[in-house]
Amino acid sequence: MPSPIPVTRLLPRDIYPSLDVGTCSSPLTKHPRCGSTLQVPARRLHGRVASRLWSSVIHWKELRSVQPVGSGGFGSVYKAEYLGETVALKRVKKCAKNKLASRQSFWAELNAAHLRHRNIARVIAATTCVPADFGDESSIGTILMEFVGSRNLQQIIYGCAEALGEDRWLRYSADIVHGLRFLHSNSVVHLDIKPANVLVSGEDVCKIVDFGCSLKLDRGCEVSAVGPHLSHVGGTYTHRAPELLKGEGVSPKADIFSFGITLWQLITREQPYTGDRQHVLYAVVAHNLRPSVQDHPAFQSEQGRLCRTLLNRCWSGEARCRPSAQELLPHLEQLRSQT
């Protein structure tokens, strides 16, 4: 079945004009029963997967030492060796309740596949064609990515006793914003920024992952958050911008709202909301509900007041009033100078 997402939202402009999708289930996969399609060559340089290339073919016989790392509603993640490099293998599973959204989520994972940045997890290869001995009837496709590490910000914020001092959470915040600035400059919006979707490497560098809700926008344009081709647009309700909750236009400013909630979590190490999900959703839109900053002890110092001002801008109910990722960076530098 053809991909429900337009090819222009999945691939850079220098690739898709020559693409012949044919009858394949994916614009990125070649298989004897699928017809013609795009091929992006894979290479091996000095025993490592080339850092600036990704492939629509996975050489399954080159996979070694596949070990499970975790699983969730999206599918399963494994750690493995591939062409001499440690990688993460992500198997995206089919959702029985919403098969269209499952397919869209898989293709959305590739919106940033052609991008290379220090704060974005690199895609190495992706395909929907899986050999029987590697396959799973519930799987839509498989993605190979760089192996960043086994820790994410959610675990660091809530799951460990180690200190999360000002210098550290400011550095993590800057990493996220640098990644967002690069994504937005390439017309990609993530739409599910939250601590669980930010991995922390062994070098203590944050990398944005999980692009299953992302969109590739035409430059300077917004896209409606509703419609048959965007049924996968979701994200986590605690971090979702009010305009998305109302079904209005998608823009990079939606990621800034989500970053604001994430920054608050880094500062306070608390949960942003309590209570029933539907109550929170209604209150965010109708009553401008946001995590507490007014009376919270973390926001009473001079630096805390600067943080409070920045947060109020990031999670403004009006997308146009939020700063861009580019505009956020000097504010974070100012906060860092206060430490």
Rank of each mutant, 00 (worst) to 15 (best):
C34W: 11
T268H: 04
Y237F: 06
H117V: 03
W169D: 01
V7S: 13
L53R: 01
P32K: 03
S214R: 03
Q278A: 12
V40P: 01
A161L: 06
Q338C: 12
G227R: 07
R64T: 12
G304Q: 07
V77F: 05
V92P: 05
V148Y: 00
D175L: 05
W264N: 01
G220C: 04
D133E: 15
L45T: 04
Q104R: 14
E81I: 03
A50R: 10
V198K: 00
R52M: 05
C129R: 15
I193V: 15
K194L: 15
Y16D: 03
N119P: 10
L63V: 13
S185K: 04
V40W: 01
V226P: 02
I157M: 11
H331D: 10
I193R: 01
Q326C: 13
H190F: 13
V123K: 00
R91Y: 11
I143D: 00
N152P: 05
D14N: 14
R290E: 04
A196S: 15
K90T: 12
F259P: 00
I193T: 14
E248M: 08
P297K: 09
L332V: 07
Q155Y: 11
K99V: 10
S173L: 06
R9A: 08
T339A: 06
E162K: 08
D14I: 14
V49D: 01
S105M: 04
V200M: 06
R240W: 02
